[in-house]
């Protein structure tokens, strides 16, 4: 099937098997291997991409379902020499070890900060109706869909806290 996706701001046309996941389309068809395949079943978060601004598991969706969608991958957030604040903070705080879950953590954090800024509550929010604190517990709960077997969790959490103000924390998006 022929489809057109907008990936990191660029229109990309590709011909895929309807069975091809968005993740495999990115990795194998578009050579964007920054999004990782850790489990292929939505259980690890390494494949996290932003679709129309929202973080999802790109392994658990079909490429053909995303005709016309705006997709952002780790490659679209920054590159060596021009890293985003989150990417820089991950380096500074050693928010990784082997690096395999890292792109997913960073893209997820980007999406999570936007969710936070929109006032979404989480499982650990004491009061569902209050504006949640950008606390360690809130970050950890909201990032729990991104596994890290090296367990760089302390560095990841520190990096997210550090970079969040430069990544638009608190800037509420216009309602869709």
């Amino acid at each position: 099937m022929k489809i057109t996706l907008s990936v990191n701001g660029e229109g990309r046309s590709l011909d895929v098997d309807p069975r091809t996941s968005l993740l495999d389309a990115l990795r194998d068809h578009l050579d964007l291997t920054g999004s990782k395949k850790g489990c292929d079943h939505g259980q690890c978060g390494a494949c996290t991409a932003l679709v129309n601004g929202r973080r999802i598991n790109s392994c658990l969706t079909l490429a053909v379902m995303h005709e016309g969608d705006e997709i952002t991958t780790i490659e679209g957030l920054g590159e060596p020499g021009a890293l985003s604040p989150l990417q820089k903070a991950f380096v500074r705080h050693d928010g990784y070890q082997c690096g395999y879950c890292t792109p997913g953590q960073i893209v997820s954090a980007k999406g999570m900060i936007a969710e936070f800024s929109n006032g979404w509550p989480s499982h650990v929010s004491e009061d569902l109706e209050a504006v949640p604190d950008f606390s360690e517990a809130e970050i950890k709960e909201r990032m729990s869909g991104n596994l890290c077997r090296c367990s760089a969790y302390p560095g990841i959490c520190a990096a997210i806290r550090d970079a969040a103000p430069d990544e638009g924390l608190g800037e509420r998006e216009a309602a869709e």
Partner: peptide
């Protein structure tokens, strides 16, 4: 309902 939803899955899965 909010609580139940937030207790399930992950941020990424809930978005989808």
């Amino acid at each position: 309902l909010s609580r139940a939803l937030l207790a399930g899955a992950s941020g990424q899965l809930r978005n989808k």
